[in-house]
């Protein structure tokens, strides 16, 4: 019992530090310190989660963390200043991908554990984090590709694009309901993941390179929302709080960025505007 209380209190402290950190990031004089506070909050959250009674195999965990940290630090150090936005897009995509995997991992455990019936609330959390996380993953990867020049940076538009996306989205809604109602059928889940990954690609390809910062900001908000819903699967408050903070502040930041660029969010999302030429 003591351990649970300790973890919860530490999560509370981390949440407060996240709020203070974001606040300080909005002012020039305190921005760097704010980032440090937020990193400290993350460290606290990670360390106390290691005390969770479900976390037992430390070898794999530490090996993975050390390896990923080394790669992350190396890349962050090497990247040119001009390449920062695409780097953010790439990291953001990984965050979205992580949420998909966390949701799928929990889904898998529940479906294959004969003693557990997946509750509807958990099912809703699973489909939402899978859908939003997958869109974030592929959308961010396309944004990264466009900014780094690995993919054609121009708006790629073709006839029937919006109807296609609408149909795909409808398919995702139907698949989500199927997963919630019949979780034991893995096929629905796999199709849901596949369709969501595809939608992420299709929604970002029609947007031109000049609008990418706005798109990355929006996808950043999405990755927060995805993390937030994994909190509902795992019944974890720090995930919900931080995810919601990023989701909400990300939307506001996206709006502010649109305004600064004299663009409307809708026109950015519909894509193909303000572009030298749309290849159709």
């Amino acid at each position: 019992m003591d351990r649970t209380i300790l973890i919860q209190l530490a999560y509370l402290i981390a949440s407060v530090l996240f709020v203070v950190g974001i606040k300080m990031l909005g002012k020039t004089s305190t921005a760097r310190q704010g980032n440090t506070y937020s990193a400290l909050a993350m460290l606290i959250a990670v360390v106390v989660t290691l005390l969770d009674r479900n976390v037992l195999s430390y070898t794999e965990i530490f090996a993975t963390i050390i390896l990923a940290s080394a790669v992350g630090l190396y890349v962050a150090k090497k990247v040119e200043m001009t390449q920062m936005p695409e780097m953010v897009a790439l990291f953001n995509g990984f965050g979205g991908g992580a949420s998909v995997l966390v949701a799928t991992s929990e889904y898998w455990r529940m479906v294959h554990d004969a003693d557990i019936v997946m509750p509807i609330v958990t099912g809703v959390g699973v489909v939402l984090s899978v859908f939003i996380g997958a869109v974030t993953l592929t959308g961010s990867l396309v944004a990264y590709g466009k900014l780094s020049g690995k993919v054609n940076g121009q708006a790629i538009t073709f006839g029937g694009q919006h109807p296609l996306n609408a149909v795909l989205f409808l398919g995702i809604v139907i698949l989500s309901v199927m997963v919630i109602l019949d979780p034991n059928n893995d096929l629905y889940m796999m199709m849901l993941i596949g369709a969501s990954l595809l939608l992420g690609i299709l929604t970002v390809i029609p947007i031109g390179g000049a609008d990418m910062p706005v798109v990355i900001s929006l996808l950043n908000s999405y990755s927060g929302v995805a993390a937030c819903f994994t909190g509902f699967i795992l019944n974890n408050q720090v995930l919900i709080i931080s995810g919601a903070l990023v989701g909400a502040s990300g939307i506001i930041l996206t709006q502010i960025m649109c305004k600064a660029m004299n663009r409307s969010l809708v026109s950015v999302l519909l894509g193909g505007f303000g572009q030298t030429s749309g290849s159709s």
Binding site: A31, A98, V102, G224, A226, S242, L245, V246, S249
Partner: peptide, 16 residues
């Protein structure tokens, strides 16, 4: 900075 915070899903990953 807020992108880094959205990496909070690391907590979920640790549990999984």
């Amino acid at each position: 900075g807020s992108n880094a915070i959205s990496g909070i899903t690391i907590v979920g990953a640790l549990i999984c």
